[in-house]
């Protein structure tokens, strides 16, 4: 099926990507081509076939409920682009 530029703009928002006009044009064409290729899956008869999310279907892996050390705050914050001594800093979310 063919994707429109509006479809691609919507997906870019969902994916939290900002695309330039040129990127949108190229992406619309390439995604249409790739989706057209994967459309062949429609011809496979999958009636009654259980979906397989993992290659090795291990179920119910339990861990003991015990307290173990977690990443110290300083280590977790060490790679932050902006931070103070207690947390991550981001642009204001409320009150715009």
């Amino acid at each position: 099926m063919s994707l429109t530029r509006q479809d691609v703009e919507k997906v870019a928002l969902l994916a939290r990507l900002q695309l330039t006009d040129d990127e949108l044009a190229v992406m619309t064409e390439q995604l249409t081509q790739i989706v057209g290729y994967v459309d062949q899956l429609a011809e496979v008869d999958t009636d009654g076939v259980e979906p397989m999310a993992h290659a090795v279907e291990v179920a119910n892996v339990f861990a003991d409920d015990e307290v173990r050390p977690s990443l110290p705050r300083e280590a977790a914050l060490a790679n932050a682009p902006r931070r103070n001594d207690r947390g991550y800093l981001v642009p204001a979310v409320l009150g715009e």
Binding site: V11, L14, V35, V44, M52
Partner: peptide, 26 residues
């Protein structure tokens, strides 16, 4: 990322992602 977001988005999940998981089992 765009391709995956599209395949998982409302209206396309069954046709692409779920379908692919079934073919994966085959």
């Amino acid at each position: 990322i765009m391709l995956g977001t599209y395949a998982l988005s409302a209206g396309y999940y069954d046709a692409y992602y779920l379908k692919a998981l079934k073919v994966r089992r085959l």
